[in-house]
Amino acid sequence: MPHRWGMAVDLDRCTGCEACVTACHAENNIPTVGPEQAARGRAMHWIRVERYWEGDFPDVRLKFRPVMCQQCDAAPCEPVCPTYASHHTADGLNAQVYNRCIGTRYCANACPYNVRFFDFFNPQWPKPLHLQLNPDVSVREVGVMEKCTFCVQRISAVRTQAKAETREIKDGDIKPACAQACPAKALVFGDLNDPESEVSRLSRSPRGSKLLDDLGTLPKVTYLARPSDS
């Protein structure tokens, strides 16, 4: 059976620390754009920790919600892409082929979660900052769209390794950078087609829901609610 990669985000564990955000930058060669461009709304964070206030002082509450590409099974970003740069892979990922992208930004408009980021300029890595670049991840150039890939390079590496060892991929073998870094273990990644996997178990939790479920995008990320929120 093919894999179906998914993620569970436990909002009860997540403390909003943003370790996942920096980890994703480090893993995926996501550039910083600098203050001027950031002020123009061009900062790139494939995963962001949204926060929402509720109530007024002193009865004020706050919610954190890490949001990355939801890897929708019915991804609105895919059919609109004229070049198949945004497309579905056999294991259910919403893949982004940077080389094929011509920068219409249509996919980003169609994505209800606003998780697609555009390279408005060529990224800057003043030397020797370039030495930190991950050789397993391409550096995107100006004019293309980029977004969370579920750290596809890590998935491939484990797949290759497992194949070489003629074994199946075990639950927990693959950890995307964000999940790896998360100190509170709020992010769990795995195969949704394996009913025994941790992520499958969590996805079936009564606390679980999908972000913007009613849009019918069939996300593969499940959010587990903070019990005190309901």
Binding site: E18, A19, A23, P183
Partner: peptide, 22 residues
């Protein structure tokens, strides 16, 4: 190329804070 939390370390148990990542 990348800093990660050491999974067996008794303090951080595999995790890192955003500062450590940077």
């Amino acid at each position: 190329k990348k800093l990660e939390g050491q999974p067996d370390h008794p303090i951080n148990q595999g995790g890192l804070c955003p500062r450590g990542q940077a």
